[in-house]
Design a protein around this nucleic acid. Structure first.
Lengths: 236, 236
DNA sequence: TACTAAATTTAGGCTCGATTAACTTTTTAG
DNA sequence: CTAAAAAGTTAATCGAGCCTAAATTTAGTA
């Protein structure tokens, strides 16, 4: 009666809550009610209600008025959802020709419907990738995540330094299209050739024999969202 | 706000009802409450309730105590679900190494989660197949189905005649595994070499240079479920 | 034709996950 | 240190879909 269903069988909602909480937690500090509500596009009292149920089920711990933390079990499920999401995104771009800006919503819906077995088949077909198309690390089947501590936002890369784009949030398709239109992709490296004060733009020069428009200017807010690794070599 | 979501956005339940009703209708006669209930594993009053809502939404017509018929709109959605299901089954077997007995459940869940765009990409990747792995016809994007009128159940293929297996229900994995274990697949042809009366078994001989066990015996009930096309050539 | 069995619908309830309105706790600013 | 603002929780409802029990309609048979 249970060949390859979705193991313990949490509801779609529960899976969404756990994943959202995980993602908030990984930005440090316990997840707050309002943040969860915003992430899930739901009113705060809905979160309070669900949080109560989830903590009664042992998926998270709730310090009233203080926020929420995943338990070991809760984190396991959350990581499973993150893995599903990122494997799906990778599969859709690699095998079905999706662009990196259009995979998020599709994966968001599919991640609740597919079986563990399908995810593993996709992972195998992809050669067990470590990162999704936006550079986010794909948790392993038993919940290990490569945390990538050396990443810094582009705004913190010093002028004159070389860096490589390593990760962009997958949330905003517009943003992803814009980033791509600048010639930037995960793995592309560049030199930071200037930065204006007062939250002004950062100027970069793409490395390699890129056609025209090797020089680009990136606004402050966007530059905050581009996670880079600073490369050793300095440039004159 | 609506890039490639699931167009009008019916609920999972509604999609299931419409598809089930379509499948019952295509066996002739309007779909009865109890038959729908059984197909969906739901109590009859649940069907009455849903039927009321669906007919108020114009997706079907309800003659109380008489059964239910899809409207044009209802049929369109039902066919969309059938197309999704069969494309998914074909994709999973062709591209991800699933066996024909294990795709049904996976497709059943995925068909509610994926977008039209994903289905079309899969269809394209497959070269727009006309039939799924069980031989069932795949409706086109605009709802045309190849009805295959020349199919007869194996029990009606006369002894001495040649036939080719063209379609098996995808519902029962056990049955599909068993059929496969006999050396039968969609497209395999064989001669009917005997049939016992009183709902007794049918004996067949597989065509071509099949290893050992070219002769197989198939019980009455199973033989009812194997849709074949009778081939022109007679055999001594 | 009347009576029973089967099929269907109605009535009443439940759970899940969401909402708004009202209340409580925590944080922050003066 | 206190008062207002912000954040969180509780209470009361709602709708979708399901259920069981109790009518009701249809169908089949004596």
């Amino acid at each position: 009666m249970n060949r390859d269903r979705k193991s313990p069988g949490y509801s779609r909602s529960i899976e969404d809550y756990l994943k959202a909480i995980y993602e908030l937690e990984s930005e440090g500090s316990p997840a707050q009610t309002s943040a969860i509500a915003e992430a899930l596009n739901v009113a705060p009292p809905s979160v309070s209600g669900m949080v109560k149920r989830l903590s009664e089920s042992g998926l998270l711990e709730h310090a009233p008025y203080r926020g929420v933390q995943l338990t070991r079990t809760g984190r396991r499920t959350a990581l499973k959802m993150v893995r599903r999401h990122r494997i799906l995104e990778t599969y859709l771009t690699t095998k079905l020709g999706y662009d990196w800006d259009s995979v998020h919503d599709e994966a968001e819906r599919m991640e609740h419907a597919v079986s563990d077995g399908l995810i593993e088949r996709m992972a195998m077909a992809l050669g067990y990738p470590r990162h999704d198309p936006h550079g986010a690390p794909i948790p392993t089947k038993d919940g290990e995540v490569d945390e990538q501590e050396d990443l810094v936002p582009l705004i913190d890369v010093p002028v004159g330094g070389m860096a490589e784009l390593r990760m962009v949030s997958d949330r905003d398709p517009e943003l992803l299209r814009f980033v791509a239109s600048l010639g930037l992709r995960v793995g592309v490296s560049f030199e930071v050739i200037g930065r204006q004060p007062f939250k002004g733009p950062t100027a970069i020069r793409l490395a390699g024999p890129h056609a025209k428009e090797r020089d680009q200017v990136i606004g402050h807010e966007l530059a905050e969202g581009l996670s880079c690794v600073v490369l050793g070599g300095e440039v004159g």
